[in-house]
Design a protein around this nucleic acid. Structure first.
Lengths: 235, 235
DNA sequence: TGCTGTCAAGAGCAGTGCTCTCGTCTGTTG
DNA sequence: CAACAGACGAGAGCACTGCTCTTGACAGCA
């Protein structure tokens, strides 16, 4: 029981190895089911059936369907975050607009490739399901990446109406959280840009632009370029 | 009953009356269930049970669960559209910013009061469920209302990067659809504002701002004021 | 008065999440 | 080495879902 737990549990027993392996297999298959039938259609029994197991056996690995969903959510946040980070890292540090475009485009492309997972992250929350604490760190990866680009920018956001007191308080707290020396209007514009970016992708994926927009990438490009300007990222 | 519509067959039999009445009752109760348990938890059987009926009887009125959802979606679009329209109509025509703020605030307030219905409209689409044609007219009410305000504005949108060819084509088609003499950048800014507005409300309702924002109305106000400027609506 | 179509009810099918029990097998410990 | 605690997969079962089919009662029309 307590073997090797003192140090790090790298003592992969055959059993432990089988367990982590099966856990991964379940998640992978669940992800495929999710992609095909959506979150609502994700059935533990169907996953178990496709795995040649019996449904009750899966409960040894995930205590509930929601736990499985949580695991998928965390994986998805990490996947889209990593995609954005590698895309941005592939651009010369001084090319701010290039980094901004690379990161935002990577987010959109990941979303287009994994629409159901995007819906899981940014669509309707499952009622009665509160996102557990473990999701907030992975969820913060993209906003933090965007802030890193903004931090290297001119620091000149598009003008804003005067900030209400409570908004300024929120922004001050936010600045303490993220570190850096962002001005309040700049930070406000950053939050707005993040809001708009997600809204933009969701609008496309959720079908609110069918009939109005034909060239989604071009539209997206236009919008994120405008957003770049609004947060002082140019050239 | 009295027939107000001359031509239309308003020959309400007792049977027809009972039918429309029961249809309304089912929808009302379904709406309440929706508000409590979300779209995923909307159970036809539960609605029937609360109505003192048997589940199969409900199928006489709505051929499937999805049809019921569609009816609720149309009603919701109409409700939020009407809320925005009456709010805007309560403001002097010349007070553009006032109309803009009234309309957008009304949308947010309706959403906050009916979060599950908002999620139904703007959250994750149900997979395998294509929004029927009947939903597009009600869905267009708010965008058209916002365009009506914009049409009375200065027509001076915030600057934009050069519009790609395909985007200009889309915008030209859109202008033909909505009528009016909007410039392409102005129309582009209008679409962006609508995107941002929905993203803004969804971010709040779907919990993506917990921990960062405390005063949601103030934050919302700031954003829609900035949006007003971006579409040439001021003072 | 009959005919026709509508209605609510009930049984039933296939599926779901989840729980509990029961042998089996495994890794660890005395 | 032997015994035991824990993990494991299988299976049955509960309460629930959407949906279908059949049945018998009733209302409106001719």
């Amino acid at each position: 029981m307590l073997s090797g737990y003192a140090m790090l549990p790298v003592v992969t027993n055959a059993r432990e190895r089988a367990r982590t392996e099966l856990t991964r297999e379940i998640k992978d298959l669940a992800r495929r089911h999710l992609a095909e039938h959506g979150a609502a259609g994700l059935s533990l029994r169907a996953v178990a059936r496709d795995l040649g197991m019996v449904s009750s056996a899966v409960y040894r690995y995930f205590p509930s369907r929601d736990e499985l969903l949580t695991a998928l959510i965390i994986d998805a946040y990490d996947a889209v975050g990593a995609a954005a980070e590698t895309a941005a890292a592939g651009v010369r540090r001084g090319d701010l607009l290039g980094r901004w475009l690379a990161a935002t485009r990577a987010v959109r492309e990941w979303a287009v490739a994994h629409p159901q997972e995007w819906a899981l992250l940014f669509g309707s929350p499952v009622p009665g399901y509160a996102a557990p604490r473990d999701t907030v760190d992975p969820a913060a990866r993209i906003p933090l990446l965007l802030l890193a680009v903004i931090a290297d920018g001119t620091g000149d956001p598009a003008p804003l109406p005067p900030l209400p007191r409570q908004v300024r308080t929120d922004l001050a707290a936010l600045r303490r959280q993220v570190g850096g020396t962002f001005s309040e209007p700049l930070l406000a514009r950053a939050v707005m840009a993040w809001t708009h970016l997600v809204g933009c992708i969701s609008f496309e994926l959720f079908g609110h632009l069918v009939g109005s927009v034909t060239d989604y990438p071009a539209w997206f490009d236009l919008q994120v370029r405008a957003l770049a300007t609004s947060v002082g990222v140019s050239r």
